[in-house]
Design a protein around this nucleic acid. Sequence first.
DNA 1: TCAAAAGTGTTAGATTTACACCCATGA
DNA 2: TCATGGGTGTAAATCTAACACTTTTGA
Lengths: 225, 225
Amino acid sequence: MTQFYIKEQKILLSVDCIIFGFEQNKLKVLIGKRKMDPGRGEWSLYGGFVRNDESVDDAADRTLHELTGMRNVYMRQVGAFGAIDRDPGERVVSVAYYALINVADYNTKLQAEHEVEWVDIESVPQMFSDHNAMILKARKMMQQKIKTEPISFQLLPQLFTLTQLQRLYEAVNGEEVDKRNFRKRIKEMDFIEKTELIDKVTSKRGAALYRFNKKMYKEDPNFKL
Amino acid sequence: MTQFYIKEQKILLSVDCIIFGFEQNKLKVLIGKRKMDPGRGEWSLYGGFVRNDESVDDAADRTLHELTGMRNVYMRQVGAFGAIDRDPGERVVSVAYYALINVADYNTKLQAEHEVEWVDIESVPQMFSDHNAMILKARKMMQQKIKTEPISFQLLPQLFTLTQLQRLYEAVNGEEVDKRNFRKRIKEMDFIEKTELIDKVTSKRGAALYRFNKKMYKEDPNFKL
DNA sequence: TCAAAAGTGTTAGATTTACACCCATGA
DNA sequence: TCATGGGTGTAAATCTAACACTTTTGA
């Protein structure tokens, strides 16, 4: 292949994944202790280098798959982090992505293998490099997104109760909402449909289970929270 | 320096600038004909490669300065564009930034030298590589931003009339707004202050000139449009 | 029988939208 | 004198926010 940009400097490019999950009414992030030098032992996001034969998005997918075994996960780019000395080892520019997964779908064997754990978004420890900034920005973007797009269902099981959904919103936004007003708004969205099924786990009385109807949403994508 | 990530592949990294301006009641973007192969002659954003001794943000600043001679310009990252074959020459990942400048501040000599021109955001031609996508995303992000932060003043002269400000909003959002309602909202923001000066250029009667008071804004940053 | 979560409507207040005419001036 | 852009208020409609009690059932 002809080389067009011969004089230019190449740079190491990585991706870092901010993996969000929802558990015990808390928004959580998946982090682990870094297993390579420099920075071995520090809390870190899971990441990887971008190869020449893959797009940056694909590198993020591959990295997420490596860690979780999951495919077709909802992922969005957070942005490029490019300070010269952000990585103490060498000059590395990193593109951060956030992913939303249903915690229950995450293979605990893989989790144990990689020694990663869920930590509450409200109490993320000090992390390697600029990973705290990445998490902060990812969370802000996700908060923005969840207001206008039905991404919450990525964090829940297929069937969920309205209380679960409400707790999720509260965890994401960091503030409580009124139950009746919340349910009123949900009722207006036809693509959040009530099933005949009842959840008897979280309450004695039992709560109706709901489901996100993707097809219906596409016909009438009016989401507003 | 110790090399930590020896086996990893390095990649060419560039920045591209989406430079927005406001002229004749239209939102415009600064573009030019590409002056290098491959793609010579195609419409293109102005860009440059990221060097190893500068942050990605700094590379964007440098690139913008190269083109416009301007410093301390409002710039925000749009995101990384990383498809493998996005550049027909070689594998290049690019980080896009949008910048807001006051068209009148732009040195016409530099503009002529670089042979760039302002084109209406509503009629951007087909562009090199993925530059159309970059412009689209930049515009969306800017539209979002202008609702909650006082960035409009970056696109206007220091002194401006309310009609100018209104036309700017209309151009950015692509739809007209009601004059009285618009002015009502402006009046609530004390940091948009009326001066004693009168603009006699755009109307016979003359229109009051306003100014953005940054200090006042910092004391009470309540911006909402 | 009681603790715990599910479920359900109304009203006041705030915000948003629609809308039309007079003013000042230069050409 | 008239064409052009500047400037101003009100009322209806919509949206948002606050608020409390009954139901079911397992322990």
